[in-house]
Structure formats: structure tokens, C-alpha cells
Amino acid sequence: MTPESETDQQYNFAYLDEQTKRMIRRALLKAVAIPGYQVPFAGREMPMPYGWGTGGIQVTAAILRRDDTLKVIDQGADDTTNAVSIRKFFKRVAGIATTEKTREATIIQTRHRIPETPLEDGQIIVFQVPIPEPLRFLEPRETETRKMHALEEYGLMHVKLYEDIARHGHIATTYAYPVKVAGRYIMDPSPTPKFDNPKMNRTPALQLFGAGREKRIYAIPPYTEVVSLDFEDHPFEVQKWDRPCALCGATESFLDEVIMDDQGTRMFVCSDTDHCEKRRGEGHVGPAQEAAE
């Protein structure tokens, strides 16, 4: 654990006052009780800009305990600038232990990815959500979308998928791919790639979603059914790459494309840096590594 001296004593543990944490916990309880339903909450102004994870940060702050171990990732990586910034914030205002290893974390705050290492019972994953409303780009009005959810009027969502297939021959949504939670609410999984959607289904971990600017919290309790929308004759499918990770040789992980030089040489590597390192530690080798040796 980080020594107390490094913790900023000017602020309450985890920055938010206890009153605010209680308010957020109440919203979280409601969210867990109604899987996929967006619970309005009185989001606070945080010392980070809106759109930079203030929703996730507030959720994490509300559930954080002194003995928690926190992992923060952005784009799957622990070392991206915003992940670093958020991890530093919690170290400073809560003095908790942090880790880059998915297995060791009790809470994982994420933007845009779910780790490749399967989550376990007792772990909590907190998603940062920019636009929580899956119907927003079909219907801009909150008054109308809330009614659509209440009445379970989701035909329009399938119209969008129909249009994709009519135009492109397949569904052309690649991230923030809508899901139906526990057979009731249609939910935005946050802008994770659809590659990660299957990981949300029946996971033993608790999944919490915080949208700070839009002031909404929602949740998927452990072992809950999460189904990606599709058609019977055009079933949901995830992205695939025709090559393995250049570093660790993984064939089942989400790969980032890295441009290596101005000739356009490209390398494909795991977006989940912890996963990639773990595999390399276990002796797995990718084509780039082989070439170097």
C-alpha cells in the first residue's frame, strides 16, 4: 500500500464527501436492481474535464475501500496518458494500491476496452461512458428516449441494423454496439469495440457504468445475460485479424495497428498491454520477436 504521507490529506478519502458517495451508492444499488436501466444521479463537478472519465471516476470513488487494488486502463493499456492521470488522482486522494495486472485488481476502471484476461468473481469493472443512451443517435430527445425504454419500444434500433445490412450487406456498427440486458433494457456498452461484447455476457464480475456529463449510472450484475442485437440470418460476430500479435503471437486478442515508419510499415499488437506482457512472460513469441532474434 502507498504510505499515508503520499495521500493528499486536504480531501476526503477518494475525493468525494461521504454524502455524495452515499448518493452515488444509492444510484448504484438501483442500477444493479434494474440491470441496464439508466439511473439519473446528481453527478458532481470533478477536477477533470467532462468527457474524460468523470462518471467512471465518481463511481470508482464511491465504491473504493482502503484495501482495494485499482487498475486503470484506456484503450486497453495502463500507460496511456489519461489512464496514468486517473491512476495518479486516486493514488493522491485515496492512497490505495494500484496494479497493472488484471488478476490482482479488485476494481478496474476502463475506457474503451474490457481486459482479455477473463474477469473473476468479486472483481468490479467500471466503465467510463460518454453517451449512455443507445437510442440517442436515432432520437435526440431525452423525453422521447426515456419513453421508448419505459415502453420497451425498440423497433427503431433494429431499423438501424436493417439499414446497415441493406446498404453494406452486413451490420456496420463496430463499437458501442447495442446490447439487450437481462431480456429487458437495451444498453450502450460504452464505446468498447464489439469485440468485447461477448465478455459482458454472464461474467462473474460486477459491471458498473458511469456517465458524468450526462449524469447517468447503469449496471450489469454478475452472471447476467447480455445479448448483442442482431438478426437470425445475420448473427452478431466480432472482428477478426488475419495475423497474430507481433509481440506475443496471440490470435484471440484485439489488435492495435501501429504505423512503424513513413513507408507505411505496420505492426499489429495486443491493445491489452497487460495481457501481452503476461503472455510474453510465459514464453509466447510473436512474428516481430522471432524476426528480431
Partner: peptide, 23 residues
Amino acid sequence: VQATGFLEHLKLPHYVDFQSELE
């Protein structure tokens, strides 16, 4: 404050989503 945050968050990395679209 909300508007500027959301506008400027476009500066954060989006390469996972961009990768998906690229594919």
C-alpha cells in the same frame, strides 16, 4: 464546462474504436 470537456475529449486516444472502423 461540460461542452468544452466533451469537445476536448476528442484529444484522448480513440485508437481502439478507430481500429474497429478501419477494419
